[in-house]
Design a protein around this nucleic acid. Structure first.
Lengths: 231, 231
DNA sequence: TGCCATATTATGGCGTACCAAAATCTTGTA
DNA sequence: TACAAGATTTTGGTACGCCATAATATGGCA
């Protein structure tokens, strides 16, 4: 790990990623950003053609996405893009609340100003992305905010869980951040988290994080109710 | 995170399990109960022979276990059984605490006596297994206790997360329950959870669940420290 | 004898072809 | 028109082959 800065200058290309990982990312991307819609069948041989890889790869990718919960497998009918009903969405937000609240509390208890500073940095990025109407940027920097929250207290497993769940509600996230006032309310709630952390107020940080997720969840529910679904 | 015993009551037979699922369970079992030890290489062609299935299946199974965190893939070396250091174990117990605490609180807030009754039933099974020195039974009924906790408030996603994490610490669980006094202390802590739920005391249920997991975590840490490790 | 360069082997990564069983669509006939 | 028989599609599963790379064995040369 100490030599990567050195060899990074030497190494010309990135040999690392296997074809399978590339394909996995592509398909996950395609599901997350709506190219494949919930309920769509994912026919193995079609995917082979579209991705330009063999069935071996496609099957492994489908298996992987299945275990991530993005793909469901109907017996003898094959894989489809998993649906997300709003009860499940609610549950996912709830879990995120519990884990992000936990991480926020731990950050506050560290009493390390560097944490709040790093979070403030992400928060600035989020606000600036909102100003530029760069919604992809908002999502990315929000993720980065939470990643900081977890990584500052070395909770990479919890971060992994949150990440896993987050991909399943990604389309909801991209809708919630576009709702009225979210550009003001969201950052304000996050600022409360940072403030509590800076004060060393564990309980306050926990509550603030819970509130932020609860807000997102409420909006998501509204969005899901408005958008009546036909599956 | 796949479907389970819901339709099991209706369906008479289950020839439906695909070979792949069978193989997945076998290999997971083999890892969880120590037939394969952490660090062991999982050579694809050897597994084919041992399981009597084709390489395609084995590869899909390995991919699945990889995404569950039971198997790690070393670039250019292939899959091995993942190690678990004690920091990661601690993180896993911590997450379980947060989620089981959440579920316990929700159960308490239901004010439904049937929940506490069902939990008491599992608790009796656990005590009885302890009396019979049936450690596999203790584990199974403890799982069932927590499954009840989650399913009574319809939190199957959180249950899935807990389950996913639990398999990674299964060998620790089987050691913690064998330690001195755990046969008394464990059930006593769980009884406190049930009591709080019966009283409708959400905060008390949350705390009791956290305490139970914290106890298990502390024992696990002791076990891990005692047992010298070579990774 | 000691060491370096070269085979060999083990293994994962990837692709293709094939078969059986189940679901679904077509079609032909009563 | 209705329905049964076949054709097609698609998954589940198998077998085999090829290539690249890393580790190991081997052999030749100073």
């Amino acid at each position: 790990m100490n030599d990567d800065a050195h060899s990074a200058a030497i190494r010309v290309e990135r040999p690392a990623k296997t074809l399978r990982e590339l394909a996995l990312d592509k398909v996950r991307e395609a599901i997350v950003n709506g190219y494949f819609r919930p309920g769509d069948r994912l026919v193995e041989r079609d995917l082979c053609a579209q991705l330009g890889v063999s069935r071996t790869i496609v099957r492994e990718v489908l298996r992987h996405l299945e275990s991530e919960g993005l793909v469901a497998n109907l017996p003898n009918k094959g894989p489809i893009v998993a649906h997300l009903n709003h009860d499940e969405a609610k549950q996912i937000y709830e879990i995120r609340g519990a884990l992000e609240g936990m991480a926020a509390r731990l950050c506050a208890e560290q009493n390390n100003p560097a944490i709040a500073d790093a979070l403030d940095k992400s928060l600035e990025d989020i606000k600036s992305s909102y100003r530029d109407k760069d919604m992809a940027g908002v999502l990315a920097h929000t993720s980065s905010f939470y990643q900081t929250l977890f990584s500052m207290v070395d909770r990479h497993i919890a971060w992994g869980v949150v990440n896993l769940l987050t991909v399943r509600i990604n389309h909801l996230r991209s809708m919630t951040i576009k709702t009225q006032n979210r550009d003001v309310q969201g950052p304000a709630q996050m600022a409360r988290i940072v403030d509590a952390i800076r004060r060393g107020d564990g309980e306050g940080a926990y509550q603030a994080a819970m509130d932020h997720v609860a807000g997102a969840s409420a909006i998501a529910q509204a969005v899901l109710s408005g958008h009546e679904r036909i599956d």
